[in-house]
């Protein structure tokens, strides 16, 4: 089954659940930034929930289908259209042979997940089909889609059911302001106490540099680090550390201004102090925040992070059991 890429969209790439076991060599997990929406689109179609999909950021692609194919779009509200006729989100529909699938402008959220019956067929690289563009690995030739690309799909195990839709309570609602829960730590002790407090008290704005590597934030006060004699090998800026590993979700603050939340295509390490880590249950939300939207951080402890993790798992369980 062949699909031709007429227009690639802003940043459209093949993603699945990502790869594990290579972060110590500098290869990050990659995979869909909003894993819950990626899984939902696959589950609607009856695909394995980690089948490869297209992650479409902010401006969707235009795709021509050679043969009829069932598809589902979850995540950001970017309504799909078949030959200009609107189609429902969060619902299985069929694209007829020869038809063109395109997307409306995004109304809410930042990334839509287009799953096709069977899943996209690219070779696995290090155990995953996900694109890691910085390393030119996985996906289609290790890069986002380009006009003229040809995609193929795997044969579905069972036919999809047209009209099958996500139950209303399982559809995420995207806002313009987000609250992200953070476990403070790592090098937070190197901040002045008032900076530590302000980081959680102020409202931050997502900068235009918000991609799969990380999200940069603006608009808050510059954070002050405690004065110190630089440790050997760390560098002279007070925000420098001896180069270390960066957790996915960790927040670093180069020179005290413009914090960066690392996401699934993260640089795996470097020399900037991290002051906390976004809890795993909130990482999907990060991938749905648009540039210029606002974020507030809420400090939580491990118990609260684990409770949120259980809630998240309950949602995934409900998705797997949907009618």
């Amino acid at each position: 089954m062949r699909i031709d890429v007429i227009k690639p969209g802003l940043a459209t790439s093949i993603q699945d659940l990502g790869r594990q076991g290579y972060y110590h060599l500098g290869i990050p997990p990659s995979g869909g930034m909003d894993q819950r929406s990626l899984r939902a689109a696959n589950l609607l179609l009856g695909n394995p929930e980690g089948a490869a999909v297209l992650e479409c950021a902010l401006l969707g692609p235009e795709l021509r289908f050679e043969h009829a194919c069932c598809v589902a779009v979850c995540g950001a509200e970017m309504s799909p259209k078949v030959d200009a006729r609107p189609q429902p989100l969060n619902t299985v529909f069929e694209v007829p042979a020869g038809a063109t699938l395109s997307f409306d402008f995004v109304r809410a959220g930042a990334r839509a997940y287009l799953a096709v019956a069977g899943g996209f067929d690219v070779p696995e690289a290090l155990g995953s089909r996900s694109t890691y563009a910085l390393g030119g690995l996985g996906g289609l030739e290790g890069r986002p889609l380009q006009a003229g690309d040809q995609l193929t799909t795997l044969t579905p195990a069972a036919p999809a059911r047209v009209g099958r839709a996500l139950p209303e309570p399982l559809i995420p609602r995207f806002a313009k302001a987000y609250r992200l829960r953070v476990v403070p730590g790592i090098y937070a002790h190197r901040l002045e106490a008032h900076s530590q407090e302000r980081f959680y008290a102020e409202t931050w704005t997502v900068a235009s540099e918000a991609d799969r590597v990380g999200y940069r934030l603006k608009g808050g006060s510059t954070l002050s680090f405690l004065e110190r004699e630089p440790p050997f090998g760390a560098g002279n800026d007070p925000s420098n550390i001896v180069d270390a590993c960066y957790p996915i979700g960790s927040i670093q603050v180069p020179s005290g201004s413009e914090p960066i939340i690392l996401h699934r295509d993260a640089v795996s390490g470097g020399g900037y102090a991290m002051i906390g880590t976004v809890i795993s249950a909130d990482m999907d939300w990060v991938g749905q925040i648009q540039p210029h939207q606002s974020v507030r951080f809420e400090a939580v402890d491990l118990e609260q992070a684990l409770a949120a993790r259980r809630e998240y798992q309950d949602t995934l369980a409900a998705l797997r059991q949907m009618p």
């Binding site: 476990v183 730590g185 001896v242 957790p247 979700g249 809890i279 795993s280 491990l302 684990l306 993790r309």
Partner: peptide, 13 residues
Amino acid sequence: AADEYLFVEVSEE
């Protein structure tokens, strides 16, 4: 580092 990562600093320098 939240619920999935543990960061261990052996030495600051």
